[in-house]
Amino acid sequence: MSMDAVDVAFTEAAVGAGISPLLMLATLAIVGRYQKTSATLPSPAAAFILVFITGSLLIVGTLDMPAFGAADAPAQLHVAPRYIHLSGEEIGIPNMVTSVLASYRAYDTLGEVVVIFTAGIGVLSLLGFSNSQNNAYFIDKIIAQDEHKILRIVAKILIPPILLFSLYVQFHGDFGPGGGFQAGVIFAAAIILYTLFFGLEVARKVINQTFIRVLASLGVLLYGSVGLVSLLSGKNYLDYHVFADDPQTAQHIGILVIELGVGITVACVMMLIFFSFIENIKQEEVR
């Protein structure tokens, strides 16, 4: 990317291409495709004028902002130089994004993993009610009707490299771009691709539903218990220096374990969300 954000590019590519449009389409398939037209809508012209005024004011506001790429912008002056100059010595891994994510701001990341986990629980409690009602899922019927041989063969060739790549991204995240969040979404995207081509019934045999529910919570538990270990050893919560005498080795162990927890939770929650959406598509609602 021209903005140097390789880690973000990974995540957005996997989420934007593999997960979010599918969730949108699944929802549309469940609730129906067409928007009803009604006369009681507020006029779009009023909304447009409001949006135009707000946008113009914001653009006037940008005139005071530092130029794109300026090295003396306020955002570059406070905490970032410390991360850039000292993370190599303090954490000992080349990828600063991973050091900041998993070590300097590990509290933040813990919070975000918990948010993802909570959202997963929310989706399951809203949509997971119809598990036993229909044995044959609608997606399986569509797949049984259409052959799509070429797509299936291509998917068969693609899925193992995607899974391998996600593991590479997971464990190589200290040295190159990558980490738990990226690996989690890439792994989930591979499983979603598999489900789309071979059906939910088959995917259920590969991915046991109860198993990934347990794994999703185990990931968060792993993350939280790393903090507890350091707490019980008399250090601060999520202080990795208890794991080894050498500070860099200790940081390295801590980051690896935490990224593993993040990766497991993200992958499992994404798969759980996708499965609960896809199993709610029923025959009569798709026209």
Partner: peptide
Amino acid sequence: LTAIVVGIA
């Protein structure tokens, strides 16, 4: 990068 994943959830 965390916000993207949280956003999709």
